[in-house]
Design a protein around this nucleic acid. Structure first.
Length: 426
RNA sequence: GGAGGGGUGGCUGAGCGGUUGAAAGCGACAGUCUUGAAAACUGUUAUACGUUUAUAGCGUAUCAAGAGUUCGAAUCUCUUCCCCUCCGCCA
């Protein structure tokens, strides 16, 4: 949630900033207008309450019964007025919250302005794209030949966009997980496995049910719960209603969870294989930091991602995401795109976001600022460790050999072995 | 799923429908004493919102959350959530 004070004090700046994310000025003015109405009403309501408290407190000391009854009668009238005003306030508050919740986070001033992903900027290319001197296979052909991936049976069991991982693919997944856990714990991250279901109220506070994101969520009607779309969604609330002490920050987590996505609106897109699925496992980095450190932490998370990519020896590019393509909760976002040989293209495998205080305000995650002697909102950042499915694709395709086998990155060999050998050809 | 018992400040734990944001203890912080530390003693010790130059003052709210009864609710009623115990089921 955006800080309403920011809109009150810097309306024009906020308008300019949010316009970059496609928000209309009237929607911001509407929120400000509701805020004004709310505060005006609140003042009269609180004055009434003060009056009520004052007189009520005097009643027990009033010995004269006639006077006493008179006071009570007056209070009965005031009571009705208070109730009436309270109801009006509640109505406006609901409308106000609806309005302010619909506003995305303010993009950092140095973020590239654009309206779609076309305007994102590649800021870095790393690793050499291999020139294959044989006809390459895509990850599904490899996955089937090596008996690693089965989507046919999965579609019978669960429908489109589901898959079975088998044999070395499973070792690869857990090898990746262990590799990341080992690497990141050495770098000060605390491992965590969060719940994969979340209550609507908390999901809302994390800013993940708004701006169209709700269409992407699985909802369990009988239990009024959502399935998470990322470990991020439940790692954040690990510190909901929490006050960090200053020297606990930055607090870094590495989490593992299954992620569930409806992929609504992507019918017909990436239908082959496991690039875009309803269920996949993912390792996620998450940081709570002091506001003044969040940009540094953002760069740090990106450096962790790159470091791990380099250890896997996969070619990738770092993309600065423009305002029009950024996440709802993000003030700044990078993506890492990994080279997918069968597509002759880089595809998004990672994201790395600084949500500043946007989510922290929602879940009420603060820290005690010693100097100011005040509780301030922390900044929260999230970044992909590895999305297993997509990185599996990259490993298989980039490391394929002419004989149909696949070389395993050195760092993962202790978990998987050196090569994946051809098992069958369809 | 069935039957019970509970949710009060950082923690433990009092609390009669009436100036109770809330006793007491612990912890934490500051000070006195001490070469230093401990002990002892003294003091401070929630948060949010509104108003405001103000982390002053004032007002409002907060005893799990929401509604209700009442002139007045931590205290009475209802609903929800959470925790605990026993039974059942279960990885």
């Amino acid at each position: 949630m955006i800080d309403i004070k920011l809109i009150r004090d810097n309306l024009e700046e906020v308008k300019v900033s949010l316009l970059k994310k496609g928000v209309k000025a009237v929607d911001i003015e509407h929120v400000l207008d509701l805020d004004k109405k709310y505060r005006d009403l609140l003042r009269t309501f609180e004055d009434d309450k003060a009056e009520q408290n004052r007189i009520s407190n005097g009643i027990p000391f009033m010995r004269d019964n006639i006077e006493r009854n008179k006071m009570i009668n007056e209070m009965q009238i005031l009571k009705i007025q208070i109730k009436d005003r309270e109801q009006k306030i509640a109505e406006i508050e609901i409308e106000f919250k609806k309005g302010i919740n619909a506003l995305p986070n303010i993009p950092d001033s140095d973020v590239l302005v654009g309206s779609s992903e076309k305007e994102n900027r590649v800021i870095k290319k790393v690793g050499e794209i291999r020139a294959f001197n044989f006809k390459i296979l895509d990850h599904m052909e490899l996955g089937e030949n090596l008996d690693l991936i089965d989507t046919t049976q999965a579609s019978l069991v669960s429908g489109a966009r589901f898959f079975y991982l088998k044999n070395e693919a499973v070792l690869l997944e857990f090898g990746l997980v262990l590799f990341v856990l080992e690497f990141l714990t050495k770098n000060g991250f605390t491992p965590v496995i969060p719940p994969v279901m979340i209550k609507p109220e908390m999901y809302m506070k994390m800013g993940r049910l708004l701006g169209g994101q709700e269409d992407e969520r699985y909802y369990l009607k009988n239990d009024d719960m959502f399935l998470v779309g990322s470990a991020e969604h439940t790692i954040g609330p690990l510190h909901a209603n929490y006050i960090f002490s200053e020297n606990d920050l930055p607090k870094r987590y590495v989490g593992f969870s299954t992620s569930f996505r409806r992929e609504a609106g992507s019918y017909g897109k990436d239908t082959k294989g496991i690039l875009r699925t309803h269920q996949f496992d993912k390792i996620e980095m998450f940081v709570f930091s002091k506001p003044e450190d969040s940009q540094k932490e953002h760069q740090f998370l990106l450096s962790m991602q790159e470091d791990m990519m380099n250890q896997l020896d996969l070619p990738y590019q770092v993309v600065e995401v423009c305002t029009g393509d950024m996440g709802f909760t993000d003030s700044k976002q990078y993506d890492i795109e990994t080279w997918i040989p069968s597509q002759g293209n880089y595809r998004e495998t990672h994201s790395c976001s600084n949500t500043t205080d946007f989510q922290a305000r929602g879940i009420n995650a603060r820290y005690k600022d010693k100097e100011k002697d005040k509780n301030e909102f922390v900044h929260m950042l999230n970044a992909t460790g590895f999305a297993i499915g997509r990185i599996l694709i990259a490993i298989l395709e980039n490391n394929q050999q002419e004989d149909g086998s696949v070389k395993i990155p050195a760092i993962l060999q202790k978990y998987v072995g050196k090569d994946l050998i051809l098992k069958k050809i369809k």
